[in-house]
């Protein structure tokens, strides 16, 4: 027995028509947007550099490639007696860019400045700027330290800062003492000990975060701390310093 199947959709012609209508609508939308809102290419601000006073390159001036024994054609520049003229900041042009400026022939000024002189002048400017910044930063730190009334060291620091020199200093004292006390009976003893050092440099609290189970080793650590403590200086900042130290025999981790 055969069964006759009847299509229930409206055929391919309807789909083509619908697609055509959608494409036409999108094209019209683009055209409308182009009329109302034309595309604008973002324009970068143009800065003009005055190339008139730039020195002409002189390959022999102060060249390190000069043959040995032969004096350079130009002596090293002497430090300027008067402060150098301020360098003009590039000014933003109010009008259109002037392409001709790139190709304009360099005009030679009356007092011709060599490359080395220019470099020297730039260095002096840079050094002057850096010095001003450093002085300002130092003044700010001094003011901060004066407000807190802290001791010399890391101004305003507590000794806990990353890379603190005080922590390294304490470690070095502990290492020296640990060399003279180390003793252990287990294979890989390891202790994590957090020390609290008060403003006078005394260890006021010891907290063992991780024990080795080796009493002999733990006693040797304790003895090292007591021995090293006699040489501790007060922590910077005047407060209590707290830091963790991991004690272990050298080379244990390599076994």
């Amino acid at each position: 027995m055969t069964t006759a199947f009847r299509r229930s959709d409206s055929g391919i012609g309807t789909s083509i028509s619908a697609s055509l209508l959608v494409h036409l609508a999108i094209a019209g939308l683009f055209a409308w947007l182009q009329i109302l809102h034309p595309f604008q290419v973002p324009t970068a601000p143009v800065y003009y550099v005055d190339v008139v006073n730039l020195p002409v390159a002189d390959p022999q001036a102060g060249s390190s490639a000069a043959p040995p024994g032969k004096a350079p054609t130009q002596a090293a520049p002497q430090p300027a007696k008067s402060p150098p003229p301020e360098m003009k900041l590039p000014a933003k042009s109010a009008g259109k860019p002037v392409p001709a400026a790139k190709t304009a022939p360099p005009a030679v000024p009356e007092g011709k400045e060599s490359a080395s002189e220019f470099e020297e002048r730039m260095n002096r400017l840079q050094q002057s700027s850096e010095a001003r910044h450093a002085a300002a930063a130092l003044d700010a730190l001094r003011r901060k330290a004066a407000i807190r009334g802290s001791t010399p060291g890391i101004p305003g620091g507590t000794g806990k800062e990353a890379g603190s020199d005080y922590a390294s200093y304490i470690r070095s004292r502990l290492v020296d003492a640990f060399q003279t006390t180390i003793a252990y009976q287990s294979k890989n003893p390891r202790i994590v000990m957090v020390l609290s050092i008060d403003r006078s440099g005394k260890v006021v609290k010891r907290r063992m975060e991780s024990s080795s189970g080796d009493r002999l080793f733990e006693d040797s650590v304790s003895r090292a701390i007591i021995k090293a403590e006699k040489e501790f200086r007060p922590p910077p900042g005047g407060g209590t310093f707290e830091y963790g130290f991991i004690f272990s025999p050298k080379g244990v981790g390599e076994q």
């Binding site: 470690r171 640990f178 006390t181 180390i182 003793a183 963790g244 050298k250």
Partner: peptide
């Protein structure tokens, strides 16, 4: 040999080691 080691968290840790077994 002393090698600083930052284990984890905010608390810093420094390694204190010594050779031998006295």
């Amino acid at each position: 040999l002393i090698s600083p080691a930052l284990l984890s968290g905010q608390q810093g840790y420094l390694e204190v080691s010594a050779p031998g077994n006295r």
